[in-house]
Design a protein around this nucleic acid. Structure first.
Lengths: 81, 81
DNA sequence: CGTGTAAGGAATTCTGACACG
DNA sequence: CGTGTAAGGAATTCTGACACG
């Protein structure tokens, strides 16, 4: 499930997030989509789960920088790549 | 693996086939991609395997109509949806 | 029959910015 | 901080057709 194969449009459908939110989470270094030669983002199913998890945590009051820290620390287990 | 999530460009990379071939196999009713609202084809990982299998069989001398028949008959096992 | 290609159009995605708060 | 939006451009994908054999 770690193959980066789907475009942002499909991720939008699968996560219910907006492209803006998805791109922002990438900007905050919380997800790392691959890129096509043309520059288009490509996500994996794992990324989709991760994105949902990120959004859930932000909803619960966390901030992106905290999630990034937790990610580095290897804590707050959920869906790993 | 049956979720139709990737565009034809990714399928091209994963299968090594040309878009022309992929579209032709769909035209011959050997694969059934989903469509986005905009009309773009969406394939699953299963479709990718199926496409590779189709191409292998054509290379071995089979014709698309024969593959379609085999498909209906449920014979020539390989990758099922 | 299975596949290549040039043609024109429509849909997708991209970046940087202004906005609110 | 996290997200919305309008702006212009670039890359992607689509269909129907002519071609070869």
């Amino acid at each position: 499930m770690s193959e980066k194969v789907m475009g942002i449009g499909m991720v939008r459908e699968l996560t219910g997030l907006t492209e803006r939110q998805i791109r922002y989470y990438e900007d905050r270094e919380l997800v790392f989509p691959a890129r096509t030669s043309g520059g288009a983002r490509k996500f994996s199913f794992d990324d989709v789960e991760r994105l949902k998890d990120i959004h859930r945590k932000l909803r619960d009051g966390f901030h992106t920088f905290e999630l990034r820290k937790a990610q580095l620390a290897g804590s707050s287990r959920s869906i790993e790549t």
